[in-house]
Design a protein around this nucleic acid. Structure first.
Lengths: 344, 344
DNA sequence: CAGGCAGTTGTAAGCGCTTACAAGGAGGTG
DNA sequence: CACCTCCTTGTAAGCGCTTACAACTGCCTG
């Protein structure tokens, strides 16, 4: 028995199998494709040979001959929080359902998707889904000329095919809730609209709620989407003497960290400030007060991305972009009564 | 300008580029490999043609000719909690550093990695990393004959190459802490040792701590690793009249949900019961009391997996397996004084 | 100035698979 | 019984790339 196949000791090919089964390679291929008509007896002989030899076709040879990779690429940022994991799971599940592999590339702050890596990714897949705001537009535009490309959680504007969950209306809704149901009048937005398209759209909703009520719109607090950014935002707030009574945060991580920091500084949530988040992460339902937030169908987003990409690749009529619906989840942090027990 | 290339409209090949640049395809290949000696003038001509045509080599053709996929496969379960994300990030970063792509396959309860999917995965990569306990041993053994394979966070026993973070000693340590520092005497273990190798090893550490002190070892509470399982465990505990004063949980999700459920039932943590978790997820530091837990270098684990796999593939002498160290993080849930502010 | 060498480029043979087409055999029909 | 069909199988031509080898150029040596 030979050792594990390596580049130097390639292992059996379709020729070995054909020999072993006493048929031609075309027949082996047919059996393996389950495609054309092959007699039962022949099929068995071939399958027996496959089994005996531990044969496994090289995907590269298949792809080359068939002219398709049968793989989708997915580009995401650091996988912090449940958001990206969910997206990824939805995408992977849908892709698997379509018999497609998923090639994943992560973009981290110190590790942008440079030309080489992007090319290597794109060269091995039939289509590409990229998280909105991750890659500069010109790079995207270039990529678009190579492969079908879909921007996920981005804006439909820039001329790319895009797909996203609703943002603006939900943000307006949650802001309006804080204003109308809890009588707040000087809310601020924690997050940087420049950092990602969703954040910009959420800030727009926030803005709209204020404008409709004739309230002034303060500048957003800025910062990224991580816990540390929430702490920073809280400290900036403290430093400015807290000219606010509500903080609408761009996501739950910010909201949780900010709440913790403000509470440590002696402020009460929701007493002194109402706080809201976005995403409904696990911790949102465990902290006290529970975090009021917006839940989005992230997994569906991922799945839809895979399906739309597949349709683009196979040339089927593309879905209309569609914006997925979200849902506001009210808990104690905005001033609402705490819902039932924290357990799921 | 042609539309986006699709299987029907393939786009430029190395031949187009060679024509456009007035050289042979061998020369184009050389330029693209950055390899052999090519005159500066020729190189420029080729690069100009590449640029003009938006040429992108097919990975499948490269792989076929070169006999390598330049890709690693990774098999993980559902990406809940930060654990798997971290692992994935570490793996992907290391792989990218080695100029390798990452093909991801997720195994979910209703979606096992059947033969077809596994074959499709293995057929397109040079090596495979699989989370311990996910795939039946016989399937693994079969896979081992095809490709280099590494079991991550599993046990080194079964004859597979394996890699993991320390479990038993840390579990013994955290259990001992609850017993010795907080005077508990009747702890139980929440989790099912059968569900994953790490859990089994943690339960072993738990067991050892009790045995060394001459205490009886109660049967583990059983159940999976999700929040819902923690709730279940809590309810089982309540139903049996709570013959315990400490719960050592297999992970933080269980610990958090169980704590919430017990608290809702009127019990005090750590007053009535000490609770500990595993992983140090984000919520662990936000809840009150903070959750005492064990932090493991998950990202490093992922990175190490990619590196070891690569060494196996390239035939370099394999690292020795190595077990990564973990660290107990003490917070309020075991009875310790709460550390500084909750913010990171 | 012949011979040799290094540097550069082209030629061509695969890599392992899919698939159009041809070929052969078995069975049915008039 | 000749002929036509359908079913099954084989033949062979790629798919787009890498790479060993050959070939050519110009230059340096003796």
């Amino acid at each position: 028995m030979a050792a594990v196949p390596t580049p130097e000791t390639p292992g059996p090919t379709i020729y070995s199998v054909a020999d072993a089964a006493g048929v031609s390679i075309a027949t082996v291929s047919r059996v393996l494709q389950g495609s054309a008509s092959v007699s039962a007896r022949t099929r068995e002989k071939v399958l027996a040979a496959v089994d005996r030899l531990d044969y496994m076709p090289r995907a590269s040879a298949r792809s080359l001959a068939a002219g398709q990779h049968e793989a989708l690429g997915l580009v995401l940022p650091e996988l912090h929080g449940p958001y990206f994991s969910e997206l990824l799971m939805g995408f992977e599940e849908a892709a698997a359902g379509l018999d497609l592999s998923v090639v994943l590339a992560l973009v981290e702050p110190d590790r942008p998707l440079d030309g080489a890596r992007f090319t290597r990714l794109a060269a091995g897949v039939d289509g590409l889904a990229v998280l909105g705001g991750l890659i500069p537009d010109d790079v995207l535009r270039r990529a678009t000329r190579q492969k079908p490309l879909l921007v996920v959680a981005g804006e439909g504007t820039a001329g790319f095919e895009a797909l996203a969950a609703e943002n603006t209306a939900s943000a307006e809704q949650v802001t309006a809730h804080v204003l109308d149901a809890h009588g707040r009048t000087r809310p601020v937005f924690a997050g940087d609209p420049e950092v990602a398209p969703d954040v910009r759209l959420r800030f727009e909703g926030f803005t709209r709620a204020l404008e409709r009520r004739g309230l002034p719109v303060p500048a957003p607090l800025g910062g990224g989407l991580r816990e540390a950014d929430g702490v920073d935002a809280a400290e900036r707030l403290l430093a400015t003497g807290m000219p606010t009574d509500a903080v609408v945060c761009a996501n739950d991580e910010i909201a949780l960290a900010l709440t913790a920091r403000l509470t440590a500084a002696g402020l009460a949530v929701p007493g002194d400030l109402a706080v809201t988040g976005w995403d409904d992460v696990m911790a949102a339902s465990y902290v006290r007060p529970g975090l009021t937030t917006v839940r989005q169908p992230v997994r569906d987003l991922g799945a839809l991305a895979a399906h739309q990409l597949h349709e683009r690749i196979t040339g089927a009529a593309p879905h209309d972009p569609g914006v997925l619906e979200t849902r506001v989840v009210l808990r104690g942090s905005c001033g609402c009564p705490e819902p039932a027990p924290p357990a799921p």
